[in-house]
Amino acid sequence: MLHLLRQILRTGIRTDAYPAPDDTMRVRAAQFEAAVLKRFGRAAAIRHVDAGSCNACELEINALNNPYYNLEGLGIHFVASPRHADILLVTGPVSRHMETALKRTYDAMPEPKFVVAAGRCAGDGGVFGTSYACLGGVGDVIPIDVLVPGCPPTPEDLMRGILAAIAPGQGKTAFGSAPTEEGTNGLSPLENLHAHGG
């Protein structure tokens, strides 16, 4: 136990400054009023669907929870049911064998819902293209709000894309500080984001 505590102290807090939302990743205009988006000041819940990826996109999504990125520190967390989700994060080209499961997940989510397609494959099928087995990009199957580039997309870009989905038009300079310094005004980082963005 002593070793464990010592290691925690030795490690300290390693979280990087959070990136700003990147509106250039948006593929369609915001569907909801600022008032609705404000609702996400506290928390946003993500449901992830791998629609047929090579699995490297998943490595980067998992990295979002390592201490450097600490996505949960933003109040954004992954949930086990689409019914509790605000954001659908989709990776991979959509394989024909995953088409039904993807559509069902999308349909099961309550409004307002946002779809973030992550990775080159999610854009247009990537190296796997379109074929008897692949339907191409996620936008060919369900409506998407944001497309995050990269193969795989970096964790920073995933964060920028997720934030662009729920906090569009906030601008890069609008973003609050890293959680190491956060908390002084009693607001969560996402709330800070909204506060700074006006």
């Binding site: 791998d50 047929g52 990826s53 090579c54 699995n55 490297a56 996109c57 998943e58 490595l59 991979g92 080209p93 394989s95 024909r96 064998h97 995953m98 499961a101 990537g126 190296v127 796997f128 293209g129 074929s131 008897y132 087995a133 692949c134 193969c151 795989p152």
Partner: peptide, 30 residues
């Protein structure tokens, strides 16, 4: 299993060895 079947082996057909390299590196990304 089989949900992520992407037709990878079919996709390789007819590619040059250079064209095929990025696909080979994405069969299992990890």
């Amino acid at each position: 299993l089989g949900y992520t079947h992407k037709g990878i082996e079919k996709r390789f057909e007819g590619l040059s060895v250079e064209e095929a390299a990025p696909l080979a590196g994405r069969i299992s990304g990890d």
